[in-house]
């Protein structure tokens, strides 16, 4: 008989004991450990999910902050660019105005310099011409330049027409002042007498005549009263010389066109002067 009933009974008991022992020492501890681990993993996963959601919220917040910052930065940058452009334009305008001022100052300085140069040149020329003329007249005629000037002035006085004499007379009588003969140098008495004679012959015997010296005249004689003048001066020739020198300066310095504007009033003065003479 293959089945031994005692063994069967013993094996049933053995198996039940084994099942109980394994339940006690194997299944329960293992399942408890697994449950604890699963619970721990679930907790950690939940914690990780919470951390992740927190991190995502933080990330969103920082992304928003970043985009706001970028926007603000670009706005500020464009604002700064505009301000810089405006400031640049303002500074450029200032520099331009300053350069204009400096340029005009330079121009006026140049004009002054030119004017002074012209004045000096004119003065020097007159003096040289006067010296040359005096020397030439002295050498040629054996008389002084003053005598020749006096002669020329007397001849000029004699050549005046009646209308001009009348205008001069009326101007002289309305002023009530003595007629002053202005010369650039003190005249010798002989020439003074000649001049007095010539003037009294042309204007009238009763006229009072005085003599005065004016260095501005350089070389010449003039009589002047209320807006009327009779004169002869070496200036007449020097003005022509000055014109030619001006023309020469203008041609040599094309930049200084403004000098024309400056010269014109003096030329006009000379014209009046010449016209009066």
């Amino acid at each position: 008989m293959l089945i031994d009933w005692f063994t069967v009974t013993a094996q049933v008991i053995n198996f039940l004991v084994l099942a109980w022992l394994l339940k006690r020492f194997l299944y329960q501890p293992i399942l408890t450990a697994i449950d604890a681990r699963e619970k721990r993993i679930a907790t950690e996963l939940a914690s990780a999910a919470a951390t992740k959601s927190g991190a995502e919220a933080l990330r969103d917040k920082y992304q928003q902050k970043n985009s706001a910052f970028d926007k603000q930065q670009s706005e500020r940058m464009s604002q700064l660019t505009e301000e810089v452009a405006a400031e640049r334009a303002r500074l450029l305008e200032g520099v331009r105005a300053e350069s204009e001022t400096l340029r005009s100052r330079l121009q006026s300085a140049l004009k002054n310099e030119q004017h002074n140069l012209k004045q000096a040149l004119s003065q020097r020329t007159r003096e040289e011409v006067f010296a040359i003329a005096r020397k030439a007249l002295g050498d040629l005629a054996g008389t002084t330049l003053e005598a020749r000037i006096t002669d020329v002035f007397i001849r000029r006085l004699e050549t005046l027409d009646d209308e001009e004499i009348m205008q001069f007379k009326s101007a002289f009588s309305s002023s009530g002042q003595p007629l002053v003969v202005r010369t650039a140098y003190p005249l010798p008495e002989e020439q003074c007498a000649l001049l007095e004679t010539a003037i009294r012959t042309k204007i009238g015997e009763s006229v009072k005549i005085g003599f005065a010296t004016e260095t501005d005249l350089v070389s010449g004689i003039e009589i002047r009263t209320e807006g009327q003048k009779i004169a002869w001066s070496i200036d007449d020739y020097l003005v022509a010389l000055a014109d030619s020198v001006d023309a020469l300066l203008r041609s040599s310095d094309p930049v200084e066109e403004g000098a024309d504007q400056v010269n014109r009033p003096s030329q006009a003065g000379q014209d009046t002067h010449e016209k009066g003479a």
Binding site: T7, V8, T9
Partner: peptide, 12 residues
């Protein structure tokens, strides 16, 4: 390998 054992398990 014993029929008694397998019978015991089958009885269980």
């Amino acid at each position: 390998g014993s029929l008694s054992s397998t019978a015991a398990l089958a009885l269980c």
